[in-house]
Design a protein around this nucleic acid. Sequence first.
DNA 1: CGATGACTTGAACGCCATCAATCGCTGTGG
DNA 2: CCACAGCGATTGATGGCGTTCAAGTCATCG
Lengths: 221, 221
Amino acid sequence: MPTNLNTHPKPLLFGELGDLSYAKVSSVEFKHGKGTQIFGQAEPANYIYQVIEGAVLSHKRLSDGRRQIGAFHLPGDIFGLGNGDFHRFTAEAIVDTTVRLVKRQSLERVARTDPAMARSLLTMTTDNLQHVENHMLLLGRKTSRERVAAFLLEMNGRLTAAGVMALPMSRRDIADYLGLTLETVSRALSAFQRKGYLRFLDPTQRHIVVLNASGLAKLDR
Amino acid sequence: MPTNLNTHPKPLLFGELGDLSYAKVSSVEFKHGKGTQIFGQAEPANYIYQVIEGAVLSHKRLSDGRRQIGAFHLPGDIFGLGNGDFHRFTAEAIVDTTVRLVKRQSLERVARTDPAMARSLLTMTTDNLQHVENHMLLLGRKTSRERVAAFLLEMNGRLTAAGVMALPMSRRDIADYLGLTLETVSRALSAFQRKGYLRFLDPTQRHIVVLNASGLAKLDR
DNA sequence: CGATGACTTGAACGCCATCAATCGCTGTGG
DNA sequence: CCACAGCGATTGATGGCGTTCAAGTCATCG
């Protein structure tokens, strides 16, 4: 549901593709409203995306609705990559989000002759793989407290500004990322607050200050 | 613990690298005894590997010993790839195994100038990623029966000969792959046998005939 | 205000883990 | 050749962690 659009004549993927900003690929910006789908599982993968502002989640579903979120994408992150011809996840905007998109074909065209681009695509895919591998250990073997602690540490590093972590996602989203229920996530967060590991700043409980990161790290490992 | 070795002057990665067998990379074969380590987590990743004969598992551990197996590698499979400079898994031979190994640097050297090699590395990494992403859904959201059914279907496709699936790995290995305990795996297998979905052929219970694959598929989804 | 949605908290349940006993096969040594 | 130790697997009994069901609070928005 693009609501706005803004073409750029030149180079423009940041982050991992920053080094390649000279590359002859063009990009377009789109805005997606909160809760809207950016692409669906099994759809043709014509573009790859970069979050400019906002937040995105990628998930898979079982036929009865159970959901597993594979990753949260925050500003600077690239997603929709490493797909073959079809997306293997569904991507949704968690909040109003601006993404930049690049035609997959144009990247591949460049990569066919430019080993630096090919290398960059490989690096991004490998980073992706690394994250997912670590998440597999979490999902397969960690306890609920360990999972929530790991989540907090991950997000604390990724979206803390001025000491405050402003979570864009709901408890349900967190739960579906961690392979838990939202109640279990809520209980773990409350327990951490009681232990003095963190503090909620607002009544909606999405602004958190981590007071004892090493305590959380010990709970994780 | 290489016990034998056999150099090849020419090309030699099969499977995904089959197309590139002309590439100027040399390979060496090693044998690893059952249960021995091929490489360890956080070791420098000097080689990538291909299973010639036998079976290998890749795993991560938590500090207290809990283990998550990320993949089983069967003949033809390539592993130890997509690492940066260090391995992110420990790899062990499940049974006596012959692997072919290729210097990572030599592949990267070729990839720097040969986009086909770069593309091939990317394809292998992406295939890897796809497997791990599906496994994440299994670990995060499937029930024990669904997990074991999915495992049987995966292995049935990969290592069945003459209708018989000969599992090289123990119940504990299966459990650590599926995020369960060995007892739960054993109970699920027994239940499937009672339902007539499969049959054990030998007293060690590692030779299995799947009698009703679609029944298992329904249990999975 | 009343409705709705996000979050927390409590109570009870259930799936899977844990603990434990047993069986069968393998290999080893007396 | 047999006794026995060791390992892998199955099966049973019990328990606990996380889920499920449910109630209640608070904020937002019509």
